[in-house]
Amino acid sequence: MSPAIETHELCRSFAGVAAVDGLTLDARPGEVLALLGPNGAGKTTTVRLLDGVLRPDRGWSRVLGADPAVDGDAVRRRTGVLTEAAGLDDRLSGVENLVLPARVRGIDEATATRRAHELLGRLGVAALAERAVRGASTGERKRIALARALLHEPEVLFLDEPTSGLDPVAARDVVELLATLAGEHGRTVVLCTHHLAEAGRLAHRVAVLDRGRLLAFGRPADLAAELWPGVEADLDLGGAAAPATLAALRSVRGVLDVALTVDGARVRVEGRDVLPAVVAALVAVEVPVYGAVTRAPSLEDVYFALHSQAVPAVPPPAAGVPRAPSSPAEPRT
């Protein structure tokens, strides 16, 4: 299946400073791809490049088979964008903010109005349908803008920080909503965010960006496997492990790493089948084991590990020296 979105060595700079620098990635039809990265990583610029609003300095991209730099209108007819700033006209009502752009897209007035009411209702902002949006809250604006991005039933949806500025409850609502929307009609979604939980919840694959460069790209589990070999497990020992216990753990064959936690220890082992030996070793030294649970590294672990690689501590590592990934197994304070 040909990708819905594909970029190759995409570059764009502003006044000599690279905003997107050699970006190569793709998204399959129906996939949710998260662009993760700190402020200024190049997420918004990437969306603008993919929608043909900005032109690349170098490299190319294809969205639904068309090159946005060449045939932007063909791309934009089939995409919907929730921009970072909702971009609503305060003087217009919720429905007008949806219907007027829909008219530009060639949707007739009656259909546009009907869909606008439906969507605003579904997104929980029906109260703003007939009222000027001046004074609407950030969350309400996001929802109206999201409705606008969806009204023409785009095949590709770009969501630039859909939950920024929302309170936790509103953010969760929007994420749940996106989870259902993303699956609909095999729609491809590009989600820009710095909320890792949101990306973890919604995205099939993540692209981690930093200062315009792609740090990593793939499924969160694959990225974690690349960063950290083996399996991690939390051992509940009823209290922080004693030094002797830690030593006993280290002596087990197949244990890669051991770290202290508040209620016991965290071990990294070569594979799941090492765990029984770990438990046996503890029993042998008469340490009670209340639980042993394998733990998949979270997207958060991956993200922080990647960023600590990308922003090396001074002095920077010499070229050629392999960078040691910081282990998520270190005890948290």
Binding site: D51, R76, A85, P101, V104, R105
Partner: peptide, 8 residues
């Protein structure tokens, strides 16, 4: 920006 994302 909203306008720029329209197919016009």
């Amino acid at each position: 920006e909203t306008l720029l994302h329209l197919p016009v």
